[in-house]
């Protein structure tokens, strides 16, 4: 029993990373109607920029740990910075193609992803080497009924739930949230109603990239190794999580992320040799019974 609870904790920690990242996929898809394959690389940018920021702030560190205020500042700067990169990626690469066939935007996104991975790799001060991520959160471990939990795990699970709660309320209860929902229903009609679509899309990319940065920081805190390729496969998995939850729906993305994380861990515990395959079989089964995802509404669309 305690082993199962232990695995659930691991599933939650992985799931919260997937969930935060899946939100970005789902928001961009809901509003712009494209799949931003470069989204996973925003996670990498968030994690790498946190690595360099904490190096810059290293004089404030005491015995390798940072005070809460400095950590909050580092995370804030990294999230805002990545958000701005997200906005500029949209403005440079996606905006000119907004009214072109969807395939063009999709291919551009793949190209942007390659660029974001290989450009930092080519920079001499970043390079391909994996780096050890600094300890931002205190890593105290304690046992509750045989289940080992660290403060890092608690902080990241709680913080990601807080981020999701805030986002959910912003989308449903504020003016900009209403504009976002209007755009996702009908972009042209929203424009006719006086909504500045460019601004809404920029904000969407900003929020998506900032959350990706947060998930990158959390991910690197529990698996403390960062390199320029860390975003690729995580991005793919989170995209699957978004589809499972019903792409376009924010609650669906959160749910899909947690399902993905827990399935992956539990399937591995059943049989480590086939764990991955079993996990994906379960996900395929979900899609067979709910083709539009758990929360999604079925619409016919070609990508």
């Amino acid at each position: 029993m305690s082993t199962l609870m232990q695995f659930l904790v691991y599933g939650l920690q992985l799931g919260s990373v997937y969930a935060l990242l899946a939100i970005g996929y789902t928001m961009v898809y809901g509003i712009v109607g494209m799949i931003n394959f470069a989204h996973g690389d925003f996670l990498m940018i968030g994690a790498l920029s946190t690595f360099f920021l904490s190096q810059a702030f290293s004089s404030f560190a005491v015995n390798g740990t940072y005070s809460g205020l400095i950590v909050a500042l580092i995370i804030f700067v990294a999230m805002v910075g990545t958000g701005l990169i997200g906005v500029s990626v949209e403005a440079i690469a996606y905006k000119p193609l907004r009214n072109r066939p969807k395939m063009s935007a999709l291919i551009t996104a793949v190209g942007v992803s390659m660029f974001l991975e290989n450009f930092p790799r080519a920079l001499p001060f970043i390079g391909p080497s994996p780096r050890s991520f600094p300890m931002l959160f205190p890593a105290k471990r304690f046992q509750i009924q045989g289940v080992m939990i660290s403060t890092t795990q608690i902080i990241m699970i709680v913080l990601s739930l807080v981020f999701m709660f805030i986002l959910y309320n912003v989308v449903n209860r504020t003016k900009i949230g209403r504009q976002m929902r209007a755009c996702s229903m009908d972009k042209d009609a929203a424009q006719l109603m006086g909504i500045n679509i460019n601004r809404v899309i920029s904000i969407t990319f900003f929020v998506g990239a900032a959350l990706a940065a947060a998930s990158g920081i959390f991910y690197a805190s529990i698996y403390p190794q960062v390199d320029v390729y860390m975003g690729g496969w995580l991005g793919t998995k989170s995209f699957i999580a978004a589809v499972i939850g019903g792409i376009g729906d924010i609650r669906g993305a959160m749910l899909g992320g947690f399902i993905m994380g827990i399935t992956e861990i539990l399937a591995t515990s059943v049989n480590s040799n086939l764990g991955y395959a079993i996990g994906f079989v379960i996900l395929i089964l979900i899609l067979l019974f709910k083709p539009a995802g758990i929360m999604g509404k079925l619409t016919i669309d070609k990508v």
Partner: peptide
């Protein structure tokens, strides 16, 4: 004996617990 698939896995906690 515990296994995992692929170079993109970063969570080995389940295997190492066992």
């Amino acid at each position: 004996t515990q296994a995992y698939s692929g170079a993109d896995v970063k969570d080995y906690n389940v295997q190492l617990t066992k």
